[in-house]
Structures are given as C-alpha cells and as structure tokens.
Design a protein around this nucleic acid. Structure first.
Lengths: 137, 137
DNA sequence: TTAAACCCTACTAGTTTTATAGAATTAATT
DNA sequence: AATTAATTCTATAAAACTAGTAGGGTTTAA
C-alpha cells in the first residue's frame, strides 16, 4: 500500500500537471486544491525537489512547478522516492537490494525466485503509469 | 513490501509442501528448519489454520499439514491474509475496499483509475505464484 | 496421569508514519 | 531599507504498526 506521503505527492504532481505551462503554484494553493495539510505538503514538495521532479522559485511570488515532463514521471519513480523498493522483499529488489540475514544460500532461496518475477511484472506496470497518463484519463 | 509475518508464513508453507504426504510437522520443527522464532511462528500457523490453508492435529504427536493443494495457495492469498490489500490504495481494492475520506467524487479521481490498473496487473501476477510453483523451481 | 503438542490472549519495546511548530532564508515590492 | 510573502530547514510529538515475548490453557497419545 502507498503511504499518505506518496499519495499526497502524486496528487500534488497531478495538480501541477494540470496547470498552464509557466504557471507557478504556491504550496498553500496545492494544499487546498488537493486537500493536503500544508506543512506536511511542504516537506513532500521539498523531497520532490530533491528528487528533481519539481523545481521551485523562492521568495515572494515563488512556488513550485514541474521540472520533468509529465511523461517522464512514473508511479514507480514516486513510489521509490517515498516508499522505497518496488519488490516485496529487499533481496528481490533492484534499487534497494539487501541480503536476508537469515538466508543461507540466496541463489537457492525458493521464495526469492518468485519475488523477482513479481518485481519484474509490477515494475513494468508501474512504469507504465505516468503523471501524463493519469491526467489524460 | 512483505511483512516478516508474510515472509515467515510463506517459508512455513514451503516447508510443509516439501514434506511427504501424511507427514505432520511440529511447530518447533518448522521453526528450526526455516529460522523462524517459535512463539511467533505459532501465531502465524494459527492464522494460516483460520484461513484454511493448513490443518492441525492437537495433542501429543500433533502438528501441522497442508490443507489446500500446493497449486491452490497463491502469493495473493497469503498477502491478503497477513498484509491485507493487494491494491496500492484502499479505494482501488477489491477485498479491502474503503473510500478515501478526502475524495469528493471517486469516479472522477485521476489517481484511482491508474491504481485499479496496477491492482489488476499485480493481482494477476501474484495469483500466478503458487506454493507449488515456488517449490518446483 | 503425564508428556508433548497446539491454542489463546495479553503485553511490550521499538520503529514508522503522519503530521505540527517555529525559525531561517530568499526575493519582490514599497 | 523595510516589509511582505514565499520557500527551506530542523526538531518534536502523537498515534499506529510491527515483531516478538510471556504465560498460561486445552487436547491427545501413551
């Protein structure tokens, strides 16, 4: 399941994607439009900025805007930024790989094989969902 | 990500699937073979029993055994039993549906549409992984 | 009757999640 | 230069969840 943070991040990105190009959105504006607690959204937007998904302008009349194209921001990206691995266990993860402490021989782990299959399929599905594809529907 | 409980449940089921038919496995036996804390495993096996995946025999020389066929226990089943919904948000879930409190018109929620697609694809993938398919590989 | 197993409920320590608070920094306007 | 309005940063806190422990109770075979 997605965390609230990931859900809010996606809603915020959807809001930004729906604005005119060159429009800059204030945090409070996004917060109200998408029903997100303002101070919580601040942190989320900062994380999105550090992830290079959005850009910001500081000071008066500042705000946020999409940095990447709507087509290049996928559900997989945002999931990884806020909720981490797509895989169901760290040992089956590409980006968040970690060995199981209790695992004697990873290459012979019955569970891992299946989880790698699942990861490949869900990753593909999640990479198919972009901010653009969501806005379009 | 899977919780430890789900991971342990799968490992326990894999162990049971590898035993001879008619063999009955004690908790302590499974716990040692699969490196699972015994008292924790007790709870997990009880949950699996309540979910009708395993059966038990009480008293001396009792233990656990697979109730369903290896082919009929899927990753989706076990995920749902211990970790709940397959979907990424409750509003996109089949078995754990819940409305978003902040959602005005669900049918027009941009996010939900994409999440339903994802759920359909991951569910299909997770239903394709069975205890039998894991043991076989 | 005893031993060995499952069954059941409660509890706890630690972690994670979901925020909130408040001050610092930046930039445009007056 | 002062003011205002915005982002940026760090710390804190309450609630929920996770992973595991504890301690019995119940059942069955010998």
């Amino acid at each position: 399941m997605l965390s609230q943070k990931t859900k809010y991040a996606l809603k915020a990105l959807l809001y930004l994607a729906e604005q005119d190009v060159n429009h800059i959105s204030k945090t409070v504006e996004i917060a109200e439009a998408a029903s997100i607690p303002k101070k919580f959204l601040e942190q989320i937007l900062l994380d999105l900025k550090r992830g290079h998904f959005v850009g910001s302008k500081q000071g008066k009349f500042g705000g946020y805007y999409l940095l990447k194209s709507k087509n290049d921001i996928t559900l997989a990206d945002i999931h990884r930024l806020f909720d981490g691995a797509i895989a169901l266990l760290p040992c089956a993860s590409l980006n968040f790989y970690e060995r199981c402490s209790d695992c004697v021989d990873e290459s012979e782990c019955l569970l891992r094989h299946g989880l790698i299959t699942i990861r490949e399929e869900t990753l593909k599905a999640m990479q198919g969902i972009t901010i653009a594809s969501l806005v379009k529907k």
